[in-house]
């Protein structure tokens, strides 16, 4: 069946044509989705779909080994690596799609369009009518054919890529490795430090617990209704994943105050000033690491 997929003709079988159009729609849809999704995790899933579609394309063109490798290595390993990093950075964080560089988006569109037109024109100009097909090359099977090439003509490149992979692995370890210059402080030392500095002697406040929100990402509220930032885990604060409910609460407080004032018939000037709703907590910049963070 595989050999029959790549006949030595200028056209393909109808089956392959149907398969191509379906896969092309999936691939382009996935690519566009990756480009347009606000959340990185969605982009990653869209790209996985594109890659799967491309894997099938490879197989349809007689590159069975590559198709499998595409699924195993790309969608299996590399995309998982991407997802890990996405989780590390914050799975729910969204990109602001507002462009900051002046004219960047317009220029990118122009360049992209021009490049696409050029490529298409180039391909169209090439007059690729006759496709030899791989039935002959794949006669003893696709994998043995590839192996013959890799271990004979391309053996040197193969060895070098091995060295490259090892270098990359070591490089990644070096880059992400955090050297401790001195021994990390123990809890006892941290407690003593806190007392000595007299900055935050009691434990940090717990996250807020409400009827509808009892997650760690919901800050507790201070008496005036503003959120207590210290009550949320520093990592969540950094990622900007703090769910601020103070606005909601303050709106309700204001409504309550107004209702009370209406009921008491007070003039507007005598009514108590209601604190303005706070802006939702922005991801903190690079503030000093908190003490309990180590």
């Amino acid at each position: 069946m595989i050999a029959g997929l790549a006949e030595a003709t200028g056209t393909t079988s109808t089956g392959e044509a149907v398969q191509f159009w379906v896969l092309a729609v999936v691939a382009v849809g996935g690519a566009l989705g990756m480009l347009l999704m606000r959340k990185a995790v969605h982009s990653a899933l869209c790209l996985a779909a594109t890659m799967l579609a491309l894997a099938v394309c490879y197989m349809a063109q007689g590159a069975v080994f590559l198709g499998v490798v595409q699924i195993v290595v790309y969608t299996g390993a590399i995309m998982m690596l991407f997802l890990f990093v996405v989780m590390l950075v914050g799975v729910t964080s969204e990109d602001s799609l507002k462009e900051q560089l002046k004219g960047q988006r317009f220029a990118a569109a122009l360049c992209g369009l021009g490049f696409g037109v050029l490529l298409v024109a180039g391909i169209a100009n090439a007059k690729l009518d006759h496709f030899t097909g791989l039935s002959e090359a794949n006669a003893e099977g696709n994998v043995p054919g590839l192996a013959r090439l890799i271990f004979t003509r391309y053996v040197w490149a193969f060895e070098v890529t091995g060295a490259l992979l090892i270098t990359a692995a070591i490089g990644a370890m070096v880059l992400t490795h955090r050297e401790h210059v001195k021994a990390p402080k123990t809890q006892r030392e941290l407690a003593a430090q806190r007392v000595r500095d007299n900055l935050q002697v009691p434990p940090l406040p717990a996250p807020g617990v409400y009827a509808r929100h009892n997650a760690v990402d919901v800050p507790a509220l201070l008496p005036d209704g503003s959120p207590a930032e210290l009550s949320v885990n520093a990592t969540l604060r950094e990622r900007g994943q703090v769910r601020d409910v103070s606005e909601d609460m303050q709106r309700r407080m204001a409504e309550l105050e107004n209702a009370t004032a209406d009921w008491l018939g007070r003039a507007s000037s005598e009514r108590p000033v209601v604190a303005a709703p706070r802006r939702s907590l922005e991801p903190a910049g690079n503030h000093e690491p908190e003490e309990g963070e180590q």
């Binding site: 220029a107 021009g114 490049f115 050029l118 490529l119 180039g122 100009n125």
Partner: peptide, 15 residues
């Protein structure tokens, strides 16, 4: 973007 633009010019001139 400038790299891409440069590539564009290169491809165009090659063609």
């Amino acid at each position: 973007l400038s790299m891409f633009g440069g590539t564009l010019v290169l491809v165009a001139s090659t063609l």
